[in-house]
Amino acid sequence: MLEIEGVSRLFPARRGMFGTTAGVRALHEVNLSVRQGESFGLVGESGSGKTTLTRQILRLDTPTSGRILFEGQDMATLSPAALRALRARVQIVFQDPYASLNPRMSVHDIVTEPMLIHRQTLGLDRRQRTDRAAELLELVGLGPQHLYRHPHEFSGGQRQRICIARALAPGPSLILLDEPTSALDVSVQAQVLNLLIDLQKRLGLTYFFISHDLGVIRYVCDRVALIYRGEIKEQGETQRVFDAPESDYARSLLAAMPEVRVPD
């Protein structure tokens, strides 16, 4: 469903008044393929290029080389109209639920905005959009009573549920989850993860799940890729990677994973 073929992204060196900054190779020859209906995990430490990769997939940024195919279409060759239609199919949930909601908009406006933008593809009128927003809120464990509140009235977990409702609004098939739980309390993390798993089963979604938390990845993902300094070090079935890591990086990462020792 999503094919990433040889994608590189270089941030060129810049010559400024105080000397030249070194160029950054954020991604180097990344090859990944995400299958319909699975949860694909991408693990890497801070600065390894995870977020840069999501920006390429969303076309918020353009790769220096390589191509990204969504359902067989190269996103770089699409017309602006076709790209916009495609954006209904690929959605994202960001890491920080405190920063990713516009503080001036009500929950209703936030959740209906994607439906408004994609009204031609979705064909919903004003009332239908409001009804659908209420349905979506219920789907993510909130309710219609929250429609006319503003983001600052919600806790982190609730905000992330609003972000998920917004991502679901245009009826996507692929959702990028950019560390969706790392900004949340541990107790809330599990709730949100279970919600995501439940939604995937119900709606047949495909997840591209980014995290640095191996425990979360193991819990959610079918397959996993490890990224380090912009290069994919290893990829495969989650179970296989965790049980029999092939690369040195995978082994060191797993060794660094905190364990809970259960007394015998």
């Binding site: 969303l58 960001f94 933008i117 917004r166």
Partner: peptide, 13 residues
Amino acid sequence: EVYVAAARAIGAS
């Protein structure tokens, strides 16, 4: 801001 990136990802003009 992240919510601006979010709006662009949704497909906002």
